[in-house]
Design a protein around this nucleic acid. Structure first.
Lengths: 349, 349
DNA sequence: ATGAAAGCGCTAACAT
DNA sequence: ATGTTAGCGCTTTCAT
């Protein structure tokens, strides 16, 4: 090995040029092509020749250059891109994990990027990924329009949209049964006698949120209940504003007897507001979370890892040549009763 | 635009070859190099010429080929690799998020891979990333030896290790003050009068775990307390075995009056075991978590996002040519009292 | 079983 | 302001 470190522990200056296959071949005393064959385990290399080439490569610290290989083989990488919101949100990281595990089965590598929930940045990231010739692109979209991607789809870069359908583009999509889950949550509360039910929702312009709001409203309408209307709050986007919103709701007179929060962030905020409340309202949250069982929070659960896995599966089928109409997979939901959603309204409420 | 979809919504078969810069140049009636200049916003292109080239590119659905560019520019990508455990663990996703945000400042892109806590897979992933000519490699190592990477470091691919120092290799590293945090937690419990303190730790072969165990033991020794010894449990690796272990500890006679769990998974398990316990022991957990405030769990907190950010910073400095001795950054910890760690032992205990 | 030549798509260096 | 030539490091094609 050449000097990786000086005796004093100093890491040497970089910038040595990496050895090339030509150098390996020269050192081994064979032609370029023979060296290539040996290092790629191709047939028709004599045992002894192969050994010589591998020794030379080890000696030089040689590694095949994936960039040159990919260029020669058709300028398409083994990378699949994922563009989503911040991975500290457990929903996105669960999705990413599901994708990653599925891709690995097929020797593909996940590249992630955070769109910061910004449409312009998202567009730029998509461009960057396409320049880098990703094999497929998975997007949890923030942007409102994706028609500009149509020509890419036709060139063999499959797109799969997660959580939110694309706008102006007909592509594979994996979504949650938002309306169904919200309807089930609403019915769960109605069945226990609640009428003044507050709905705390995130940005109403986002399609999944709209689905959850509409599912909730459908259930209310179907039951002939309209006492929820004064307690509708939308465009609550982070934990602290959710906490504030819930405090305000509980200060009303009459106050709601139950809450439905439409994602994990808002549920966290609600739990903060309800902490140490002497007589907390019933609560159901969309999205399951790690400690829900410990806290006793009733949730609308769904399998975010499966969502990622299915999306990766769809993408891989397209990569493998599947063509045909755009497909749509719906991830089902289920209400998991853990106590908070089963609290009845007080007598007379 | 050429047919992206047929009238029936069918996505057409892929495999059309992508247009090249040569074709764009031909269509625009300029030379290859002029087209290159125009699309890269280089100087010395006439306004009108630039427009013509861009129109031609749009018309053909052309995108620069990042692979060819990177080959020509020196076979080094704009990618930085991260190899860590599963991103559904909030610790890893927080680290990834910190890295991602820092890299973005410098136009670098994060590529993630999950080592599944397996040393062989980790080695293979490192090889794959190096073949792909990543600019830097960030590793939360699982493997026991990294000496084989020394020659890479000398070739200008900077390595930064997170959470666990590399073995047999002198490279930049960012770690948590494990011993200090554990010592503080132990003292916190000792101060409140606890003597029979249980320690529930993950795999003892992992360096961060060893640091936490040793910090705890140091504090015990310093206080002259040795009643903790029967309650030491290590190699508890997942939520359900942590739950089981804590149940077993509490069934002992005498039972411990306090617990210290050495990471977020184990704390979750302990919380499950303690749920609905009539007289729970005191509890402090290493790693903060979202709902700790709601549940009232005292923790040893540290900034995992900052850890990622610092690691990315170190890597970027090396990419930018910094050479010099390997550096080591220690992320500090603090005990956040939220109730569970302040419960005193029962009188007489 | 091995080798020579061509070229993937682009940018750098050097004209003009 | 634009064009020409060479070549990044590899794999492919076609010899031998």
């Amino acid at each position: 090995m050449s000097a990786a470190r000086s005796p004093d522990g100093t890491v040497d200056a970089p910038a040595e040029r990496r050895p090339t296959l030509t150098q390996v071949a020269a050192l081994a005393g064979v032609s370029l092509k023979t060296a290539s064959r040996a290092l790629n385990s191709e047939p028709n290399v004599a045992e002894a020749t192969g050994r010589r080439v591998r020794d030379a490569a080890d000696h030089l610290g040689y590694r095949l250059n994936g960039i040159a290989r990919e260029l020669r083989r058709g300028a398409t990488s083994a990378l699949v891109g994922l563009i989503s919101g911040d991975l500290t949100n457990p929903f996105y990281s669960a999705v990413a994990s599901g994708i990653e595990r599925e891709l690995r089965q097929h020797g593909l590598q996940l590249v992630t990027a955070n769109n910061d929930e910004d449409a312009e940045l998202e567009h730029a990231l998509i461009d960057a990924f396409l320049e880098r010739r990703v094999r497929a692109l998975l997007v949890v979209p923030s942007a409102d329009r994706h028609a500009y991607l149509a020509i890419e789809g036709s060139r063999g870069v499959p797109f799969v949209f997660l959580d939110r359908p694309p706008v102006g583009l007909d592509a594979d999509v994996v979504v949650i049964d938002n309306a169904g889950g919200a309807r089930a949550a609403a019915e769960h509360l109605l069945t226990r006698g609640h009428r003044r039910i507050a709905l705390v929702a995130d940005l109403a312009r986002m399609v999944p949120q709209r689905g959850r709001i509409e599912g909730f409203q459908q259930a209310m309408r179907a039951s002939g209940n309209d006492e929820w209307a004064p307690f509708l709050r939308t465009d609550v986007h982070d934990v602290s504003s959710a906490e504030r919103t819930v405090r305000e709701l509980l200060a009303l007179d009459p106050a709601p007897t139950a809450l439905f929060t439409t994602n994990n962030r808002l549920t966290t905020g609600a739990l903060r507001a309800l902490k140490e409340h002497p007589d907390p309202p019933a609560l159901i949250g969309f999205d399951d979370f790690d400690l829900a069982e410990v806290i006793g929070t009733t949730v609308v659960a769904h399998d975010a890892v499966a969502m990622g896995r299915e999306a990766a599966r769809l993408a891989f089928e397209r990569i493998s040549g599947h063509s045909g109409p755009a497909r749509s997979i719906v991830i089902s939901t289920s209400v998991i009763a853990r106590g908070s959603g089963e609290r009845a309204p007080r007598i007379g409420d």
